[in-house]
């Protein structure tokens, strides 16, 4: 009798755990770059790595959290209202293009900036998304 209670009890627990994982955890879990340890790099280095060898740079940086340091070249807003920042890559053709997770109105052109975000690859710029501003000097 006792054995049966244990067996049924454990089955119920397992089912509850699966239910929790599929319906509750999966629906709420979100990647947050702010909690991740980032690779610190300058915008100039990042751009030149991508210009030299895109696939090699992808193995190093793609989908990783990066902390990019550089000077603000352009600030704007995308079509959904988020702040977009272009960081100078010391290269006329490509720079680092960042989309912030939130709106930030205190970004100034030509100031030094540190941005943390996920690197999603290279189009004509290195693209960083879900970004946060770390500190300004």
């Amino acid at each position: 009798m006792k054995k049966w209670i244990i067996i049924i009890g454990s089955i119920v627990l397992i089912v509850a755990a699966i239910f929790y994982y599929v319906f509750i955890y999966a629906a709420q879990y979100k990647r947050n770059v702010n909690d991740e340890k980032a690779i610190a790099i300058t915008a100039v280095e990042l751009v030149s790595d991508y210009n030299n060898n895109e696939s090699e740079a992808n193995t190093k940086y793609l989908n990783k959290a990066l902390l990019v340091e550089g000077f603000v070249k352009e600030v704007g807003q995308n079509q959904e209202g988020s702040t977009i920042i272009t960081i100078d890559g010391a290269n006329d053709f490509s720079s680092v293009f960042c989309t912030l997770k939130d709106v930030n109105k205190n970004v100034e052109v030509n100031k030094k900036i540190n941005i943390k975000g996920v690197c999603i690859g290279f189009t004509s710029d290195v693209v960083i998304t879900d970004a946060f501003i770390q500190s300004k000097n």
Binding site: A26, A27, I120, T123, V127
Partner: peptide
């Protein structure tokens, strides 16, 4: 939100590039 698009009005040439990892779903899984 990070689609790169260039268009030349003189001859209609158009180029789009987007990064697949830039797609955001409501559900992370």
């Amino acid at each position: 939100n990070q689609v790169d698009c260039k268009m030349l009005p003189s001859n209609g040439q158009i180029v789009f590039a987007l990064l697949v990892k830039g797609f955001r779903f409501e559900n992370q899984l």
